[in-house]
Design a protein around this nucleic acid. Structure first.
Lengths: 201, 201
DNA sequence: AAGGAGTGTAGAACAGCGTTCTATAGTTGT
DNA sequence: ACAACTATAGAACGCTGTTCTACACTCCTT
């Protein structure tokens, strides 16, 4: 049996660094994610962050792409009713955000200094919006949201869910029952957007 | 006439520093706001940031309190119909966010490293939520949002408006007509939350 | 089996960050 | 006129992301 090699295999390094980064964000907040601290926690040399990723930004890209992948997998529900599908998707989105706060923080909440998403990251994000838009489009085929442009409805839904989750994670949620108020929120919004035009103005 | 004094009066310093900070955030983004750059732009010594404010955090507190003050003044509409009041308030909120991006960024969008709001700042923020909640309460007196807990409705409304504005400022808005889609969004939400219970689940 | 290519390592170095400290110079009130 | 106050410049400290250099180890080819 050979002595334990002092070099860590490449694949273990990238996975270890990403999970160490998520731990750091979770435990010490986004500003706790520094290259030196990350390397220390991952049991790796600081230079490895530059060898295996494109620096700190590369680690962030990996986290964000990972987050969108999880999010996309959650959207794959097989409910027949597209309206229920939309509600279930919204609940799943919020659950993802609350359960994977580090992912969600990196994806939507915290603007890391000097970070601009890579081309791949932006592509994956756009794909995520398309999944939502497709679900809204399916609703229209069933007669829901008549006379609306489906990307607009998708934008409105995303804004609502993101706004609720963002305030919740920031600690600015004064709701009596957060789960129930969220469900009521989404159902109310869908109902309100479904009815053609109740605007009194 | 005495020669122009080389010392800047205190009151001019605090005002100048705050407006210089807003300029920096607007022109170079939140990470462009550094103590040295701020002092340079305000034509002041870096130490003045610590003499007149409580460091960089103090400047951020001043900006945020300033923002909430502006926001509160915009909420003072004298419309008789409380529902219209709510819609007008939402539109005014969005206008404020889009017009005073630096304020809104500091208030809700960017998490500055090492910043935690002061006690005064949190008090002003809570007062802002109370203004919104009072408007929703007035709606209930007129029969709108029956069988709902008014702070919950206030939370839902705030979440919706903030979510829409946040995505818009972050450049993630794919709506066909941003103004119209926002109006439709708010009106739809209010209508949907007004109708008692349409939940099909 | 030997040797070169590739890669992970440690550590120093750089500019910039928020913040603190010191010493100087200008203003103001008595 | 003199003391109290305050804004100033500038150095300093420990931190940041990043780059660079020199060294050690593994693996593939010959």
């Amino acid at each position: 049996m050979p002595p334990r090699p002092q070099r860590t295999p490449s694949e273990d390094i990238v996975a270890g660094v990403v999970s160490a980064a998520l731990e750091l964000i979770t435990e010490e907040g986004p500003e706790g994610l520094t290259v030196r601290a990350l390397a220390r926690r991952a049991g790796v040399a600081p230079m490895s962050i530059y060898n295996h990723f494109d620096g700190k930004n590369g680690v962030l890209d990996a986290i964000i792409v990972d987050g969108f992948t999880i999010l996309a997998s959650l959207a794959e529900t097989s409910l027949t009713d597209p309206r229920e599908n939309l509600v279930a998707g919204s609940v799943a989105y919020r659950d993802f955000a609350l359960e994977h706060r580090a992912h969600y923080t990196a994806m939507f909440l915290h603007h890391f200094v000097g970070y601009t998403p890579s081309r791949d990251t932006m592509y994956v994000a756009a794909k995520g919006f398309e999944i939502l838009a497709a679900q809204v489009q399916k609703c229209q085929e069933w007669g829901i949201f008549p006379d609306k442009f489906y990307p607009d409805v998708a934008q409105q839904l995303w804004a609502a869910v993101h706004g609720y989750v963002a305030l919740e994670i920031l600690g600015i949620n004064f709701a009596s029952d957060r789960d129930a108020v969220f469900c009521d929120f989404i159902n109310g919004l869908i109902s309100g957007l479904d009815t053609p035009d109740v605007s009194l103005l």
